[in-house]
Design a binder for these strands. Structure first.
Lengths: 210, 210
DNA sequence: AAATTAATTGAACATTCATTCAATTAATTT
DNA sequence: AAATTAATTGAATGAATGTTCAATTAATTT
């Protein structure tokens, strides 16, 4: 009875508007008023759905963390072929897709909340462990199919993500496109090394056969 | 003639107060008023020395970036002994010292400005390249003394710092002290591997000799 | 002592902010 | 049509923000 609720879709809409503002002006300058103005609603409607700005930020973080899991999205055709899937995932991580999915400015601002909010910290921990766990499972599948021989899949998965996080930390500062591309390839090579796979670029550098 | 200027010392004092507030409440909540109150001065004095809050943040970033270089501070006795010095630097990086020098919450907030401020981005780039350059020089010294055999010192230095940055990204989420210590040792081991040195912990795990 | 220069204060300003509350509008059910 | 429920608005509030400006205080030199 009564009017039917559109809570969830409205919340998502607001979060995305908030994200848009945060991308443009920084999370610290993203306000409820600006968010409301962007989608032509009243600021009090934002409060109605989120109670406080704090909860809106929580919503944003949840939204962002969900995006991270999309790097495991691979073509349905790869089902049953963990090797192909693994390579695709590595591709996703070290490619344009990463930059499309995330705005690093907002990401680092959100991450900084980890240090003052236990709940945020836990959410991030769960995500990072999930990312590692998924990669580990993928490696183990490859091991079982005999296409990979990785001794400690969990440790390798961890190492790879350590490299990913560190890599983008540096890459965010590289403005030169050519240098960016080259560095990205280099870091991808490091990840593949961890899997005892050799990247095309690094093998080309030190070929000694013939 | 006239009153002698205390500009520099006053600016430093203000920056440190601003940093203190930022550590406690987050950079986005660190205001000029709070900063002034902390050291019992008038808010307009802060403006007098920094013109705008933006420049105060620039000052803070400069202050923070200078701190990073302190990880290369080693006992004077190590002079002429690059091997000892290298190990000490690695120690500094993967130890309590890191956490004493930096507040990661403020660090990530500052870093997020990189994406909206070209000047900040350049400053960070210079720092990160300096950190890598110093480590590379240290490795080369070790090579020349025959105590290390690293093929590509520049690449290895880069890789180590990629690992460092990625390592602390994850470690910031680890609340369990024991787990933290163990992970830190593990990441340190990865760094030493890059130098073709074996860490005590990692060698103990898979010892097969007799 | 007068002149000079910098340090410092205090009042005032406009702006933006998050949030509250009551009132209204729009669906949906009985 | 009446009742119910949620969506949405609009006005208002108080607090905090960064910044400006003129005035005052304190040191240092001539």
């Amino acid at each position: 009875m009564g009017r039917r609720s559109i809570k969830e879709s409205r919340q998502k809409e607001i979060i995305e508007a908030f994200y848009t503002i945060a991308k443009k002006e920084g999370l610290e300058n993203a306000s409820i008023a600006k968010t409301a103005a962007l989608i032509n609603i009243n600021p009090s409607l934002v409060i109605h759905y989120f109670k406080t700005r704090e909860y809106l930020v929580y919503g944003l973080i949840e939204y962002i963390l969900d995006q991270y899991l999309l790097i495991y999205k691979t073509p349905a055709a790869y089902k049953g072929d963990p090797h192909k899937k693994l390579l695709k995932v590595i591709d996703n991580i070290f490619s344009h897709k990463w930059n499309v999915l995330f705005d690093d400015s907002v990401a680092y601002s959100c991450y900084s909340l980890v240090f003052r909010d236990q709940k945020v910290k836990e959410n991030y921990k769960v995500l990072l462990d999930t990312l590692r766990g998924n990669l580990r499972a993928l490696i183990e599948e490859c091991n079982q199919q005999g296409v990979l021989k990785v001794k400690d899949p969990a440790a390798v998965a961890d190492t790879i993500f350590v490299m990913v996080d560190g890599a983008y930390y540096y890459l965010s500062l590289v403005s030169n496109k050519k240098e960016y591309k080259q560095k990205l390839a280099q870091y991808k090579g490091l990840a593949l090394q961890q899997l005892n796979l050799v990247s095309p670029s690094s093998s080309g550098k030190s070929r000694q056969k013939h």
